[in-house]
Every structure is written in structure tokens, then in C-alpha cells.
Simulated assay, not measured.
Amino acid sequence: MPVKPTPVGPYKAILFDIGGVVVGSPFQGIADFELQHNLPVNYLNVAITRAGHNGAFQRLERGEVDLWSFYDAFSDQLSDPRNVAAYAKYAELRSKAFDEKSFKAPKVDGRALFHQMMSKAAVVNPYMVEAIAALRKAGYTVAALTNNFNYPSDERGQREQDLILKETADSFLTAAKTTAGTKGPGAIVMGQDQLKTLFDHFIESAILGLRKPDPAIYKKAAEIVGFKSEEIVFFDDIGANLKAAQNEGWTTIRVLLGKPRQAIEQLESILGITLLAPESRL
């Protein structure tokens, strides 16, 4: 069995958020759903945030509700008329035009929205796959640290995951036909089990009962990977999650929407190694 190389420098473990970093962003699925249903920009994000710590999505990611109960609760939460007033405050703070009196709270199908979110999150970014493989080859411990959920393990749950993967593949093939001839590698569609094989550790909110940005999940993650805070670099796309990691002493890199290579190049600079092949930079 070959000996694993020892990384040079102060960093030993590289942790990755999943949604919006290694895979597509569920937020893009929300944005697409809002556009398709003629909803104001960020209306659904405001509705999800308004529910706070005990919202349907937050509870799903802590493993407190099953998927089927979540669908019902998510639909009710997103259809709540109180979301209109919350969005009016959001719009006012940003000087956005919004007529609260004439806007009627929509009836939102939580399952349909969730499918659209998850279909984005099933498309893996090839640059991140390449970088993760290079990091592991170089001897770094590579882990996922994700707010997630797990599909039910029964036949019904498997059918639901298979349906989302099929919807993803169909959507991706349609997009590929419209962008034929463009440069760059194609996206990769993966299920949860396959995605987990990319990492040395897959640290999940649904298993721990903790979700980012709770400080406890970062402490637990450091314990799982077995390294000190100053030896960890963390990728995420959400500011609050990165700030919480910084408070734990982690080095952080923000992954901006559509700019994964920029984040990887920042990591290359920090580590002093090359992670992407020349053809991946074209």
C-alpha cells in the first residue's frame, strides 16, 4: 500500500461546502422557480429566512423531519401570507419597488420547488472534482462540511431521488444542446452516494443534528478531520458560514456564483501547489 505524502506548509485539511461550491447552487433553482412563476426576486429566500431556526428547510437539514413531512411544511411556509409583509420590509431596505397592497401571497408547491433546487445541486462542477482529486493525491485530508438532508432509504425515497436525478439529466442535456461548441469541460450529474466517494470525510448536518453557521458544527468538523483550526482551509459560498468558520480560526475562501476556478486559484496560491491542469484554465 503506497504511503500517503505529507503536505508541505501549515495547512493539512481542506473542507468544502457542497451546494454552490462542489455542486450547483440550490439558490439558482430558487431564482429559476421565481422567474417561472412571476415572483419578485428573492421572495422565496425571504420566506425561507423568515421562518428562522425552526423553518421547514432548517429542520430538514438537521434531520428532525422526514422528506414527506417536509414537503407539506415547506409548502405551508412558502404560501404563508405573512411572507408578503416580510418581503415588503426586505424591499424597502434595498429601495426596491414593491406594491404590498396589490400583491397576493402565492400558493407554492414545496415539492416542486425542492425538486428544482436539488436538480441544480446534483450537477457537480468538474473543476472542483479535479481540484479535490489533486488535493488528495498531494496528501491533504479533504472533507465535505454540508448542510444537507438524506433521502429516505425505502423504495419510495429511492424513487424520489431517481426522479430528481432524471430531471437533472434531462435539464442538463437540453442545456448542452443549446450551448454546443462552447469551451470548457461538461458538468457531471451525481447522486449523493457517488458524491461522497470524492472525500475522505463527509460531514453532514442531517447526521450531526447541527447546521452551519452554528459554531458547534465547526468544532465537531475539526474533531472529525483531526486537525487544529489553524490547519484548516474552508470553501463556502455563504458569508455567514464563512464568518463562523473564521471565528473558529479557520482560513476561508468564498466561492462566488459561477467562479469556481477563481476560488481554486486562490487555494493554489495559499498552498503553493498546482491543482488544475493547463487545459482546465482555458
Rank of each mutant, 00 (worst) to 15 (best):
L195H: 12
Q158P: 04
Y151M: 09
V189C: 09
D162Y: 00
A175H: 08
E92L: 11
E204T: 07
F149Q: 13
E160P: 06
E92K: 15
M190C: 04
A86W: 03
H115G: 04
S95Q: 14
G181S: 05
A121Y: 02
A187V: 05
F103N: 02
R111N: 02
A112S: 11
E155A: 15
A144R: 08
V142G: 04
A97L: 07
E167N: 15
T197F: 02
F172W: 10
R159E: 14
A97C: 03
A175S: 10
P185A: 10
L145K: 04
V142R: 03
E130W: 07
K107L: 13
K104A: 14
G191L: 08
K96H: 09
P185T: 04
V124Y: 03
P152D: 11
N148V: 09
N148D: 15
D109R: 01
F114L: 14
A105G: 08
K104I: 15
G181E: 05
L145A: 08
R159W: 06
F172M: 15
A105E: 11
A176T: 07
V108W: 01
G139D: 06
N150K: 14
H115Q: 13
Q192A: 12
P185I: 02
Q158E: 14
A144V: 05
Q194G: 14
K137F: 00
K107F: 01
F149I: 12
P106D: 12
A133S: 15
L173Q: 11
K96V: 13
L195R: 11
L93H: 14
Y151P: 01
L135V: 08
V108D: 05
K166M: 12
T146N: 08
Y127G: 13
A180D: 07
N150R: 14
E155W: 06
V108Y: 02
L113D: 05
L113H: 06
L173W: 01
V129H: 12
F103M: 04
I188F: 04
K183A: 12
T182H: 11
A175R: 08
K166V: 07
A133Q: 15
I188H: 04
L195K: 10
G181L: 04
P106M: 09
K89Q: 15
G139L: 07
Y140A: 04
V129Y: 03
N147L: 01
L198I: 10
K183P: 12
Y151V: 03
E130R: 14
F202Y: 15
T197G: 05
Q116N: 14
V108M: 04
K104G: 08
R136H: 01
A180M: 09
M118C: 11
A86F: 05
S95T: 13
G181Q: 05
L165H: 07
G186W: 02
A131D: 01
F149W: 13
V108E: 05
T146F: 00
D170A: 13
E204F: 00
S95N: 15
K183C: 01
K183D: 07
K96Y: 08
D162H: 09
S119L: 11
S171A: 15
T168L: 05
F98K: 09
E130V: 08
D109E: 09
R159G: 08
K177F: 03
Y140T: 05
E155R: 14
E155P: 02
A143I: 06
L195G: 07
Q158D: 13
I203H: 00
L93P: 06
V123K: 11
D109K: 03
A121R: 06
R159C: 07
A176K: 08
I188R: 03
Y90G: 05
K177V: 10
G181Y: 00
A88Q: 12
N125C: 12
